[in-house]
C-alpha cells in the first residue's frame, strides 16, 4: 500500500445513498498516483456512483473522500479543473463538428483559443481522428465517438482521468485501439481510473484493482494477486455426457482444489490442469471434451460476485 500522501484519490467509509437505496456502502480505497486503477463489478455494484463522487458530479452522502488532495464538497471546481472524465454514455455535442467539440469543451476550462486549437489538433492525432476533424459527430462510429470523448476528457491535460466503462459496446478492433491509446496515456504519466465488467480489459489495463459487489469492495490487489488469492493457477473445463449427470456424484472428488458444476460444464480449479485431466482419465470417467486453461480474472470475478444474474 502506498503512503497516504501518495494517493491521488483516498476514500474512507465512503457512502452514497439515494433515499433508501445504498449504492455505495462505506468503502475504503486508495488510488496511487501513476498507473491505472480498476473498479470491477457487475452492473449495479456501485462503480458508477463511486466514479461520479470522485468526479464531483454527485455529492458524498457520508464518509471521507479526497481527490488530488482536495475535498469534493468544498473544492469541486478546483478538482474538476484537473480531472478528465469519460462518462459511460457519450455526451458529445451532436450539433458540433469533431474539432468544435474539443475547442468548445476547452472554453469551459478557460483555455485560451490558440492553445485549445493546438491541443485539439494534437489530441485528434492522438486518437486517430485527425482526418475527421471537420465532420459532424453523429455519423461517427461508436468507437470513434468514444475516442473523441476520450480526447475531449484530455483537453485540460488532466492529472487524473476517470473512464466509466470505456469500451462497452465496441467491436474488438475498436477496443484494442482504445486500450493501446489508454496504455500510451498511462505511459505519459496520467493516472487512470477505469470501471469495467470486462475481465480481459481489467487484465490488460489495470495495475491494481478492486472488485465491487453489492455496494461494497470484496477484494483488492493486482490482477495477478487476485488470481493467486482467489483462484488456482489453472482450470480444467470438462464437458461430461449428460446421461452420467446423476451418477457422477463424488466421482471427481479429490481431483481439484475446488469443483464447480455448471449446467453445461464442470470446472476443476487446480494448479496443474493436465495432471487433473490424467487423473480423470485414470478413473475412467467418460469425458466429451476437456480444456485446460490458465485461470483468469473472470474466475476470480465469478467466484467473488457469484454466477447468478444481478439486476
Amino acid at each position: 500500500m502506498p503512503a497516504a500522501s501518495d494517493a491521488l484519490v483516498r476514500a474512507r467509509s465512503l457512502t452514497k445513498r439515494f433515499n433508501a437505496f445504498t449504492a455505495v456502502d462505506g468503502i475504503d480505497f486508495e488510488v496511487p498516483a501513476g498507473g491505472s486503477f480498476g473498479f470491477l463489478g457487475p452492473n449495479g455494484a456501485g462503480k458508477t456512483s463511486t466514479m461520479r463522487m470522485i468526479a464531483c458530479a454527485s455529492p458524498v452522502t457520508s464518509g471521507e473522500l479526497r481527490v488530488i488532495g482536495m475535498d469534493p464538497r468544498t473544492d469541486a471546481r478546483e478538482i474538476k479543473a484537473r480531472l478528465g472524465v469519460v462518462p459511460q454514455i457519450d455526451n458529445l455535442d451532436q450539433e458540433l463538428t469533431v474539432r468544435e467539440n474539443l475547442e468548445m469543451y476547452a472554453r469551459y476550462f478557460d483555455i485560451p483559443a490558440a492553445v485549445a486549437r493546438q491541443r485539439a489538433s494534437e489530441l485528434l492525432e492522438f486518437v486517430q481522428l485527425a482526418e475527421r476533424a471537420k465532420d459532424q459527430v453523429e455519423p461517427l462510429s461508436g468507437g470513434m465517438k468514444r475516442r473523441l470523448t476520450i480526447a475531449r476528457a484530455l483537453i485540460n491535460e488532466p492529472e487524473l482521468v476517470i473512464l466509466d466503462e470505456p469500451t462497452t459496446g465496441l467491436d474488438p478492433q475498436a477496443r484494442h485501439l482504445l486500450w493501446e491509446r489508454l496504455y500510451q496515456l498511462k505511459r505519459r504519466g496520467a493516472t487512470l481510473i477505469i470501471t469495467t465488467h470486462y475481465m480481459d480489459e481489467a487484465e490488460q489495463l489495470c495495475d491494481r484493482l478492486v472488485v465491487m459487489d453489492k455496494a461494497r469492495i470484496v477484494a483488492e490487489g493486482s490482477p495477478r494477486q487476485l488470481i493467486d488469492q482467489y483462484s488456482t493457477r489453472e482450470v480444467l473445463e470438462l464437458r461430461l455426457p449428460d446421461a452420467d449427470r446423476g451418477r457422477r456424484n463424488g466421482q471427481l472428488d479429490g481431483l481439484a482444489d475446488r469443483i464447480e458444476e455448471l449446467p453445461d460444464r464442470t470446472l476443476l480449479y487446480t494448479d496443474d490442469g493436465e495432471r487433473a485431466l490424467d487423473a480423470v482419465h485414470a478413473r475412467q470417467i467418460p469425458v466429451e471434451s476437456a480444456l485446460v486453461r490458465r485461470s483468469s480474472l473472470e474466475d476470480v470475478f465469478l467466484r467473488l460476485t457469484g454466477r447468478t444474474l444481478v439486476e
Binding site: A57, A76, E78, A81, L83, P87, N91, Y105, Y108, F109
Partner: peptide, 14 residues
Amino acid sequence: YAKTYEGILATPMG
C-alpha cells in the same frame, strides 16, 4: 437527451 450539461458539469463549470 443530449446530456450536454453533464459534460459541462464535468468541467469547472457549475
